[in-house]
Design a protein around this nucleic acid. Sequence first.
RNA 1: GUCCCGUUCGUUCAGCGGUUAGGACUCAGGAUUUUCAUUCCUGCAACAGGGGUUCGAUUCCCCUACGGGAUACCA
Length: 472
Amino acid sequence: MSVVTRFAPSPTGYVHVGSQRTALYNYIFARQQGGKFILRVEDTDQNRYVEGAVENLLFSLEQLGIEFDAGPGKEDDKGPYFQSKRNDIYAKKVQKLMDQGHAYRCFCTPERLDALRKEQMENQAPTGYDGKCRTIPNEESEERAKTEKFVVRLKTPDQGFCEFKDIVRGDVKIAWSQVDDQVLVKSDGFPTYHLANVVDDHYMQVTHVIRGEEWLPSVPKHLFLYECFAWEAPQMVHLPLLLNTDRSKLSKRQGDVAVEDYLKKGYTPEALNNFLALLGWNPGGKNEIYSMDELIETFDINKITKAGAVFDVQKLNWMNGQYIKNMEVEKYLKEARKWLGDVIVNEEKLDTALMAVKTSLTTFKDIPEKLAVFTGEPAIPNSEANEMLELESTKLVFMAYVEKIAALEDLKVDDFKTIMKEVQTETGVKGKNLWMPVRIGLTGEMHGPELGYIVEYLGKEENIKRIMSYKL
RNA sequence: GUCCCGUUCGUUCAGCGGUUAGGACUCAGGAUUUUCAUUCCUGCAACAGGGGUUCGAUUCCCCUACGGGAUACCA
């Protein structure tokens, strides 16, 4: 049977980086196995409807290069891919469960449920529904359903254990006594996650359920549903959670968690994917930079880690810098231009300036700051810089430099190198005493991008002007 | 409270009964470079604790501690 995986987020308005990793693993595994990857929107909670959430979801996935084979906008005979549009399917299945005696209507009020839970806690007993409505006769149930609000619950086994195999966790064993009579249909008529998920996964022929560890305790309910329907259950793959620095579940409170936040901060989708993919799995070896294709090639679903992983932005920073440094020039220039902000630069020489800062970027957002040296007036030299300027040799260097530049038609990075060699020969000044005064003379600073770029960017006239201003 | 899951350098990932416990990030030092950055080299740094099993445990089992998750008519 060919592999089918799915990413099934609820549309909350943004894509959590933890979700991104889940999506990524699903995607990578499907591609690797030559299978299918589908996107399903789990929008069964009407209270959580967020305007534009689906568009945002689709957009984020597109930017990340995580392509689905079927899903919203890519419908096929297994759709629709919105759970809110599949209610008739769920209704039929629920009816079947009720007919079989595996599900029942529950008329208990939220107040009673709260009180029950409180009492259970006090008695140090497991919490969960006590099964009060389990025994209501059919006719009575039918009758009350006409006037009263109700939910439909799953009648889970009371005794024994649910044992199953998870590709990440290995053998897992949970006592049925711990498993609640889960609500399957809410009083508004919509299914809960548990029902919709199982039904959809079956009809969409999902073979591997790859999702976050928070779902592990719910697996027995799901497996029981598969059993009731006489369906074959998919493989379970529960991923370790992504953690904050303090090791709690990665949350909004402690920093950015949305994919769009990171993209807005100038991280590349490639770096983000790469970084996240390696949180929970690693092919071993020295290299840690993997393209999507390489991830697909080397990924091993059997080697996913069990422990939660801290989302450490330092490593992301390093990785993102690597991606920018190694980015193809055309692509880099195109992307970098989007990040200029209100920095005013010489449009004609912009590429030169951008190339000059390429190796020094952590994220694209650093661009304006790094570009500062190319824009506006030179900085005022500090005392150390002034000392350099006052050296005897500096005068010689400046004179020779201006002379060479003046004789030139155009000024390119390579010309500059040649010129400096000539200046060195003529003046006998070399090393730091040769280069640093020129740097300071042109920028006022002792640090900055490679001089050649700056020289080319400034152009002949500006070079002369700036150097002359120091020539006494 | 109850149940489930987890625990190797600060972080991340290797290791799958015998290793000087390895790589990457961070940090420190050094080399290269006109400077910063890049690049390269070197270094610091870990098997949570206690019992077993075994000739031998980081690796297998149990207990404890700690951490996390689930306990919703949210997913």
